[in-house]
């Protein structure tokens, strides 16, 4: 029997059948359809039928809560009176978190915006979180992750809380907090000060400091590409989770969801 098979493709199948993550590098172009069929057959033969792992469901729930809490933090909005928020559901949650509608809410909202708005030169220490804020958000707490003195303009520090591995970054005076976990395959991102991004060492996704994928296909479609890259990152990735962040005196704190 002529042995025309490829050793690499055999390894692809073996990885698949042992439940691991197979590598696309083991599959050459013309084997793509075979790889896809093998994946589907393997799924069909799995006695567990693709039932999700309970721990995975819980972790994703926490990631979503953190992301949701964070989306408020970096959004560019105009307050008050002329509230402009892009996304309907987040809008309601933002309003909730910032206590709008509750006494003192607008002051808290304005302070939060001042800290986080791009363009402000210095982070403004905020002591004006609405007292009702924490309890309205529910399960979570502020956790100190860095000292402001250790975070000069352009610097970034890694932090870990129970729910999130992240970076706090001083982006031209604006303190931002972002997840350090790539939304593709959960590799740990690297902060590149010069490039102003968080870069994934695994497959090369770059996220800007608002957490959005920065070197995706849109940039190439628009003709400007991404500095330093020769091709678009090929997938649409969801943005990085962004916990809320605040500065109290010298203390940089992020909001951390509890299990």
């Amino acid at each position: 029997m002529v042995d025309e098979r490829s050793e690499a493709f055999d390894r692809f199948v073996d990885t698949l059948l042992s439940g691991g993550r197979p590598s696309p590098d083991q599959v050459v172009d013309e084997e793509g359809p075979m790889a896809q069929l093998a994946a589907e057959l393997s799924a069909a033969g799995d006695p567990h039928k693709g039932e999700p792992d309970a721990a995975f469901i819980e972790q994703l729930r926490l990631r979503m809560r953190d992301a949701d809490a964070g989306i408020a933090a970096v959004q560019d909005w105009v307050l008050p009176g002329d509230v402009q928020l892009g996304r309907a559901r987040i809008t309601r949650r933002d309003l909730l978190r910032l206590g709008i509608g509750a006494a003192g809410g607008l002051a808290a909202a304005a302070a939060a915006t001042a800290i986080l708005r791009a363009g402000s030169r210095e982070p403004i220490p905020s002591a004006s979180e609405s007292p009702s804020d924490g309890q309205l958000v529910g399960d979570g707490q502020w956790v100190e992750v860095a000292s402001l003195a250790d975070l000069p303009v352009g610097a970034a520090l890694r932090f870990s809380t129970t729910a999130l591995d992240g970076y706090v970054v001083n982006d031209a005076g604006t303190i931002r907090a972002l997840s350090a976990v790539c939304t593709h395959q959960a590799c740990t991102l690297i902060y590149r000060q010069v490039w102003h991004d968080l870069r994934c060492p695994c497959h090369g996704a770059s996220f800007d400091l608002s957490g959005k994928l920065a070197n995706g296909r849109e940039g190439w479609a628009a003709g400007h590409g991404y500095l330093g890259d020769s091709a678009a990152y090929p997938l649409d990735l969801p943005p990085l989770a962004r916990p809320r962040v605040r500065v109290l005196g010298d203390s940089v704190q992020v909001w951390t969801a509890l299990a």
Partner: peptide, 24 residues
Amino acid sequence: VYARVGNRPDAEDLTALVFMRAVE
């Protein structure tokens, strides 16, 4: 997703991608 990618790590990534997008 699992029925189409045939492995749990990728199925979890793609499932997460779907719901993280839903958050937004």
